[in-house]
Design a protein around this nucleic acid. Structure first.
Lengths: 173, 173
DNA sequence: ACCTGAACACCGTTCAAGT
DNA sequence: ACCTGAACACCGTTCAAGT
């Protein structure tokens, strides 16, 4: 059925890691599949639709583990950063242009509900703030040419995250 | 001297607001100036160089006002957001691809110094966190198709910012 | 169901040459 | 100092036609 569609999607992700977002071309992707560019339009109506599908596939939507509210929040933020860092130009691709898609929205809602039940006031603000931070941090991290070692970047990310979580905790008194 | 260079820069920013980043083409820009695209390469060595110059011009680098540390931080964050929102695709243009440039680095340093003198521990972490938040929030805000009114977006931004500042304050005890 | 061939309307960039 | 003309090596997308 739509199984060639999935092959195209996987080839696109492989090619992204190989050549980067700017060089990810319908024509180049087609040639990797042994096919002409025009053939791709049978599977995706436009390049943008293909990029959207890539984002949806990468982000996925995991289960919410059993954990304290702060661990939940840390997990969501690091999870987003991990998936971005796992692919070349992942931050630009994912943070980029897209209304969030129904799966992402649902995952957000579940997280907000969990925090609310754990007694976090204004849980939506907390989640939005942490996710905006993770997005902003990682976009800049991956855009920067001069890259310091992963260990230090992880620590910087965790330090900022800790600051926000302390702010949420302060609002809970 | 390099005054045609400045005309090109200003025309590019005008054109950005008119047509958006994706339609901002060397050929279209040239035609607005009554000139062929190849003529632009006398003033900027590449399109990327022109985009970098646009970012530098938009971001500028203001004075640091006399204010409490938290007001300083709020001002820096809202200032960044304002300049992004002031131009079509401003967030994507500015947050995008660029090592920060020496002026931006200097402004960062001054802010960190001011916070340190005001008794904020780990002032660098505080500044980085707030700026990553402002970046992430605004990129998402401007990318979203379905736009709610400005007033509500401002409030959401301020709420998140307040959370981070509360976290910094909590670290000061 | 999937693909080709050819075309359309574009890109950024280079370079000799003009004034 | 600034610009033209022409070219090079590309783009995304459409559409009739093939198997």
């Amino acid at each position: 059925m739509g199984q060639r569609r999935t092959e195209v999607l996987h080839a696109a992700i492989e090619l992204l890691d190989e050549v980067g977002l700017d060089a990810l071309t319908m024509r180049l992707l087609a040639s990797r599949l042994g096919v002409r560019a025009s053939a791709l339009y049978r599977h995706y109506p436009s390049k943008q639709a293909l990029l959207d599908a890539m984002v949806a596939h990468l982000v996925g939507t995991g289960e919410l583990p059993e954990a304290e509210w702060d661990e939940l929040l840390r997990g969501a933020a690091s999870g987003l950063r991990s998936v971005m860092l796992a692919h070349r130009d992942g931050a630009r691709l994912i943070a980029g242009f897209h209304d969030p898609g129904p799966d992402a929205v649902a995952a957000f809602e579940r997280l907000i509900t969990a925090l609310t039940e754990a007694g976090v006031p204004a849980a939506a603000v907390a989640v939005d703030t942490v996710m905006a931070y993770a997005n902003g941090f990682t976009v800049e991290e991956q855009a920067r040419k001069t890259r310091w070692p992963r260990e230090g970047r992880d620590r910087a990310f965790d330090d900022g995250l800790a600051l926000i979580i302390a702010g949420i905790r302060a609002s809970m008194v």
